[in-house]
């Protein structure tokens, strides 16, 4: 009979991240996350339609306050997220290796790139309005200007190819402008996403700005697309059938729908995966006319 180890390790329970808290799925359902060899890594929640709805409520509640913060403050918080991720890089490297079988070097590269991507977007918070805003010369006595505002609540279906860098690349451009987001993680290594939730929970990010659900894309996509209090859908790596399903349902409330290609880690390392033009799909442009005269 095998001898019990001297000390039994304490395993982590992986739950959902909604409104800054870590609840279990109300459905009581779970899936078994497995590594690249098929060995079980952990039990993770399989989020239900109700969990999605709860997350949208939390995201809605948080959104206005997040958008009203100064751009400088949002930038600082994104930068703080990068700090917290960097300080826990060993944890993420180990989690990526355990969950996906990445080599230590590749895992180190992914974590570093994820930190850098957060820093890159953090800097856009107070520059994007200048990048995307204009003063417009009009042929009348008006001061006329256009500036971007957050669309509102976005549901994002994150990369199924890169557990951390792909996830960060979906979250950062959406929240930097003042949106809140409900991220659905359906790829391998959902545990890594829940590790990231712990980073977010300790980064001064107001609860509800980012909510993370582990679950099945096909199950949750129609509910997200149909939800009347969701303003936008981002879907990374959607096939034509998923695009169609989301597009058809999203039309009922004229949602902003944006698709991005997915790929393996090298795809996400590419500099082309970070761009101010990736912030554009989830901003609204407001034009104001102010008369001039004495």
């Amino acid at each position: 009979m095998a001898k019990a180890p001297e000390r039994i390790t304490v395993r982590k329970t992986y739950k959902l991240f909604i409104g800054g808290a870590f609840p279990r799925s109300e459905s009581g359902r779970y899936t078994v996350a497995r590594d690249d060899k098929g060995a079980p890594v952990a039990n993770v929640c399989r989020a239900s339609r109700k969990d999605l709805r709860d997350a949208v409520v939390a995201a809605r509640k948080a959104q206005e306050g997040w958008a009203k913060r100064t751009a400088f403050n949002r930038g600082q918080i994104l930068y703080r997220m990068a700090e917290m991720l960097e300080s826990r890089s060993a944890v993420f490297e180990a989690a990526l290796t355990a969950a996906t079988g990445l080599s230590a070097k590749a895992a180190e590269g992914e974590v570093g790139a994820a930190v850098d991507r957060l820093v890159w977007y953090a800097g856009w918070a107070d520059k994007f309005p200048q990048f995307m805003g204009t003063t417009n010369p009009v042929a009348s006595a008006h001061f006329n200007f256009t500036f971007p505002e957050a669309t509102g609540v976005v549901v994002a279906f994150a990369s199924e190819g890169s557990a951390l860098l792909g996830l960060v690349s979906a979250i950062a451009p959406v929240i930097v402008s003042g949106n809140s987001v409900v991220v659905v993680v359906s790829g391998p290594a959902p545990t890594v996403a829940m590790e990231l939730a712990e980073v977010l929970a300790t980064s001064d990010l107001p609860g509800g700005v980012v909510n993370i659900l582990t679950g099945l894309r096909d199950e949750l996509a129609p509910h997200a697309a149909r939800h009347m209090d969701v303003d936008g859908i981002l879907c990374v790596g959607a096939d034509d059938a998923t695009r169609k399903l989301i597009g058809v349902e999203a039309a009922e409330s004229v949602k902003r729908v944006h698709f991005e290609d997915d790929g393996d880690l090298s795809h996400w390392h590419d500099e082309a995966r970070q761009s101010p033009y990736l912030i554009v799909p989830f901003v609204e442009l407001k034009t104001a006319w102010h008369p001039m005269g004495m």
Binding site: T134, N136, P137, T146, T287, W289
Partner: peptide
């Protein structure tokens, strides 16, 4: 929550002014 806001005026248009 609207794309065009007119201050002390209404229904002004200009090719240089985004609308939507």
């Amino acid at each position: 929550r609207a794309g065009v806001i007119w201050g002390n005026s209404f229904n002004k248009f200009d090719p240089g002014s985004p609308f939507g």
